[in-house]
């Protein structure tokens, strides 16, 4: 009796362990595949020059710059708005129907597919507001996409600040906004910044929202204003993989682009982890 129970447990645990390592294996497979095929393409020239020969040669500099602009634009929009919105729900409202409503809306916003954001950005920013396909239209669309992420992570960070901190500050005569500025935000800062960095990773990889709001199929020159179109890394990879002039010849460049894209995401993820660790140690 005891024996069978033990054996059952052994079998079950082995299966679960295998599943765990299967997931790890899938990740390593994907990363390994991209790195293995992409690493030979990466060079200074690849990073810092424009595509040539119908996108079968040259580099991806305009796409990198474009993605960089989109990151800046969307974060400038989403970070202040998202952080303030989170401060409002955590610090200012009681647990009432309004906060409940905001939370439900935030959750819904987070669950809306990215292509729907693309449609929305196209009607509102590109057509109705007349921005055209431009950095600003794309940035605002991407900004809305990461807004729920920013709000949620900031909320979590603010909630993690012990109530005694706030009471202590108030007892010393500080008013609410002073308490938030001087006590709550600095304490919550490491967690907030972690969430923000992760959302940058998200922005750099999203394709669907920028399809119709900013992304250019091929545009070797750099943008001059926020009303210009740009190329972007994820869209460039999509184009290279599916609809370039010569898909086979563009394959190596596609691997290189995928590698750069993954590198950015990896960088952001590890940055987030490092910052979090560092602040936790200092505490």
């Amino acid at each position: 009796m005891m024996q069978t129970k033990k054996i059952q447990e052994q079998i079950a645990f082995t299966v679960f362990r295998l599943l765990g390592f299967l997931v790890l294996g899938v990740l390593l497979w994907i990363l390994g595949f991209i790195v293995y095929n992409g690493i030979s393409v990466i060079s200074w020239e690849f990073i810092f020059s424009a595509p040539t020969d119908g996108m079968t040669g040259g580099g991806i500099f305009p796409a990198i710059v474009g993605t960089f602009y989109l990151i800046i634009g969307s974060t400038l929009f989403a970070f202040p708005l998202g952080i303030m919105s989170a401060i409002y729900t955590v610090e200012y409202t009681k647990n009432n129907w309004l906060t409940k409503c905001i939370r439900i809306m935030t959750n819904n916003l987070a669950s809306i597919p990215s292509i729907v954001f693309g449609l929305f950005g196209m009607t509102l920013f590109v057509n109705t507001l007349g921005f055209g396909d431009s950095i600003i239209a794309g940035s605002l669309t991407l900004g809305l996409l990461i807004l729920p992420v920013v709000i949620r992570t900031t909320e979590e960070a603010l909630k993690a600040v012990p109530k005694t901190y706030r009471l202590g500050s108030t007892a010393l005569g500080a008013n609410k906004i002073q308490t938030i500025k001087r006590v709550v935000l600095p304490t919550a800062f490491p967690n907030i910044i972690t969430g923000l960095i992760l959302s940058i990773g998200r922005v750099s990889g999203e394709t669907a929202p920028i399809l119709f709001t900013v992304a250019a199929y091929f545009l070797p020159k750099l943008p001059h204003s926020i009303f210009d179109q740009v190329m972007a890394l994820p869209y460039h990879l999509y184009v290279l993989a599916t609809s370039g002039t010569d898909i086979e010849a563009a394959r190596p460049i596609a691997y290189g682009t995928a590698l750069v894209l993954i590198f950015i995401v990896l960088l952001m993820n590890s940055l987030a982890v490092i910052i979090k660790k560092r602040f936790e140690k200092n505490k």
Partner: peptide, 19 residues
């Protein structure tokens, strides 16, 4: 495993598509 799974979530969908 935890960071690996976070990373899996972070990989852009277009890279998954390419893969």
């Amino acid at each position: 495993l935890k960071p690996a799974i976070e990373l899996l979530a972070g990989i852009p969908s277009v890279v998954y598509g390419f893969f």
